[in-house]
Amino acid sequence: MTDESQQGRRNFLRAAAGLGSAALGLLLALPGASYVVDPLLRASGKKGRWLPVAELEGLEEEHPVSVSVVGEQRDAWTRAPQRKLGMVWLRKKGEQVVAFNAECPHLGCKVGYDRDQKHFACPCHESAFNQDGDVQGGPAPRSLDPLETRVVDGKVEVRFVRFRAQTAERVEIG
């Protein structure tokens, strides 16, 4: 074999080796990538759900009370009938009930309530909100997220939804 044809053969083999490696890589990389991005492909089918959270009798007009929201949770393979899904602040206002999702719209910490100052306060970055949920200070981009409420046979129900943090507009995330 001449040096030249030897060189040509080696070049061909190098190209074949490159192609072969690429084929092997793709065979793993393509399914692997779709496996990894699975949560993005999975549409969250959950929209807000009406869930009973408290007795109307237990609520006050002057201060809000916090209650946990319990309902069916579907999480990956699990379907749990009674799981804690989040917290809401409830306050009676005439015949109506005002409800806020307790997640701070800034970065999702659970906001507390200061009975002396009569305002909501976030323990993380000191966002503060008045009783109507309006921002009084701190970095929160919007007021507290109000939830629809209704009273059925003395039981307070909220339509429980969560919203994306850090946006001025409310974007439901199921």
Binding site: P31, G32, S34, Y35, D38, W77
Partner: peptide, 8 residues
């Protein structure tokens, strides 16, 4: 359930 999970 997971996309391409059966293949992996």
């Amino acid at each position: 359930k997971v996309t391409a999970g059966w293949f992996i």
